[in-house]
Nucleic acid binder design. Structure first.
Length: 208
DNA sequence: TGCCAGGCCCTCTTTAGGGCCTT
């Protein structure tokens, strides 16, 4: 990651899978990366205004009691909007998190203009031999030390950041002439999977 | 009671279907 690059790695916990079906965010967390280091964090539970079902309570460990004393979504998302500014974003399966980010922002008249990177799509291209590309599997596959609870937003954001940094390191080791800038990583995620090694080789040649 | 999303990717594809990921 170049010195000029900053990235905000975010993760939502939600009441379900689809904001279009009425699902809401119940927790948002993010870590800010600069020069390959975590330099800032954001974490907040938020009250969606209704009870969450027992599956979500069990899956996330976030109870209705915890949410009853949390700030409303509108307040938390306003604070999060200030936190991210126009920094590029990253999430594991970004299409999911961006749906909720855009949905919650829209409720308070805000919109997000930041580009979004996806560690899931990137991992499918860079780590084709991983058993699967779930976040927890990638953490183990890459040998990342961890001590925390999956399916809580801050821990998942922290692990996503570490997976991302490990993938950047692999590119830098395998392709010494390639700088894995945000622009390059966004382009990489759009390459057909089978073309990725040759494509990265080509980036190297171009840069030399 | 039963059902529930959507984007991406792969292939025995493209006039489609199904698996992977996220909560």
């Amino acid at each position: 990651m170049t010195a000029a690059n900053s990235l905000i790695v975010l993760d939502f916990e939600t009441t379900g899978l689809s904001p279009d079906q009425g699902d809401r965010a119940i927790e948002i967390a993010a870590v800010k990366l600069q020069r390959g280091q975590v330099v800032d964090e954001f974490q907040a539970l938020m009250n969606p205004g209704r009870r969450v079902n027992s599956f979500i309570e069990s899956y996330t460990g976030i109870s209705n009691e915890m949410l009853s004393s949390a700030a409303p979504c509108e307040q938390v998302m306003g604070e999060f909007y200030q936190f991210i500014g126009d920094t590029p974003l990253l999430a594991h399966n970004a299409s999911f998190d961006m749906k909720f980010l855009n949905g919650e922002f829209a409720r308070i008249g805000l919109s997000c203009n930041s580009p979004a990177l996806c560690s899931l799509l990137t991992a499918r291209r860079l780590l084709p031999d991983a058993p699967n590309h779930k976040l927890g599997t990638l953490v183990d596959y890459l040998g990342i030390d961890h001590d925390g609870q999956y399916h809580r937003a801050l821990f998942d954001a922290q692990m996503t950041a570490q997976v991302w940094l490990a993938m950047l390191e692999q590119i830098e080791q395998a392709y010494p002439d390639v700088t894995p800038s945000i622009e390059l990583m966004m382009a990489l995620a759009k390459r057909p999977k089978k073309q990725v090694p040759a494509w990265l080789d080509k980036q190297s040649v171009v840069r030399v």
